[in-house]
Design a protein around this nucleic acid. Structure first.
Lengths: 210, 210
DNA sequence: AACTGAATCTGGACGCCGTAAAGATACATC
DNA sequence: GATGTATCTTTACGGCGTCCAGATTCAGTT
């Protein structure tokens, strides 16, 4: 019955690529209003579509969040790839990877929260994190080898990679707390603070081991 | 109008200590049904009280969660205190602290999630974590000193303490993922896996530093 | 070009949620 | 015993995730 779709509104009944539009709308909401405002209805509203429309593209809200999270992991992957390749030396690659990880999390805090919320709900990281040379996990492992880890001890190598991941994730979640504002100021910025924590991971590790 | 409160039900109109009962009910729900089921209404239901009753004891849902989280931090504090005091030597105290931290998180995953969800929402850890000799943060710092950290470098000491906290929190959140089930099996249990990750934090740290 | 079936979107409904306001009930103090 | 205050209930509102029936459009056949 919409006879005069002459005006600029011109929303056709079929959207074209609503799935894509929904993911974009979700990311827009995440960045502007934060994770608490990310309701399925709000996403549909933002995309200019009825509250039930998303159900033709996602089984439920969780599946939409999975799609959003997946983009987050992809972006993180690329940030770490760039950090690893741009490192001045293989030696310097490891801290660069860590800082890139934490900076991604601090630059996209809402997205990062969605990524880990979904992972915790499923009690598993996305599979593709561990697959392929370019995956963040494998890059971390290979960088550890390049930095001197023993490649002939697969279990130890995996444990060290997990340790690195734990340190980065922990710092990503904790680094934003107000309690550490004075340190960021004293060290001259957030990134310097992150680097400082990573550098002092050795003090902690020595306290653990010998 | 309740003329015959003879029966065993006998719920008086005034509860007595509803605040306490609500916190307990919340923790019961957390342990049995998980964080997703923790609605204010469900808590009120579990405590046998109307949906609006909690508002006489907590400003909103967040304040109730804060109270629950606070109990969590207290329990964690005690677990770490016990771990620190029962350590066979000052040297062994550090890994014991870490394992105690992670084990607490894995034994009370829902509670742990509430604790950090509230902290992230407020972008700050609870203040009392940093106050007093018995606080978890100070205990970690002092244990680091006992394990050989330089006490005359306050910034470095703080960074190392944060590093330790990051490692523990990261492992607490990541350690439950299915991807690592094979490692737990290979190493003979979850606690051994945790210990293994902590021990290999040094490999990661060496990769970072020299 | 008209018909048909499948894909997509709307509108409305259900039960749950957090929260607020107004009224009922019990306690405390005088 | 009366009165004020703290506590609890009832009712209500808007928002949420999700389902269902119907409207609309698209794609393929003839």
């Amino acid at each position: 019955m919409r006879e005069t779709e002459s005006a600029a509104e011109a929303r056709p009944y079929h959207h074209g690529d609503l799935r894509r539009a929904l993911i974009d709308a979700a990311r827009r909401i995440l960045e502007t209003k934060g994770p608490a405002a990310l309701s399925l209805r709000a996403v549909a509203r933002e995309a200019g579509v009825s509250p039930a429309a998303p159900y033709h593209h996602f089984k439920d809200k969780g599946e939409l969040l999975d799609a959003v999270a997946d983009e987050g992991w992809r972006i993180l992957n690329e940030a770490m790839k760039a950090a690893g390749e741009n490192a001045p030396s293989p030696r310097a690659a490891m801290p660069s990877l860590g800082v890139a990880y934490v900076c991604f999390a601090r630059e996209h805090p809402a997205l990062y929260r969605v990524m880990y919320k979904r992972s915790r709900d499923k009690e598993a990281l996305p599979e593709h994190l561990h697959e392929g040379e370019d995956s963040a996990y494998c890059r971390t492992r290979d960088t550890l080898i390049a930095a001197g880890a023993d490649p002939s001890d697969p279990v130890g190598l995996e444990l060290a990679t997990i340790a690195a991941w734990c340190a980065a994730h922990g710092l990503a979640e904790i680094g934003g707390f107000q309690q550490f504002a004075h340190l960021k100021e004293a060290l001259g910025g957030e990134e310097a603070f992150f680097r400082g924590v990573f550098e002092h991971m050795g003090v902690f590790a020595r306290g653990l081991n010998d």
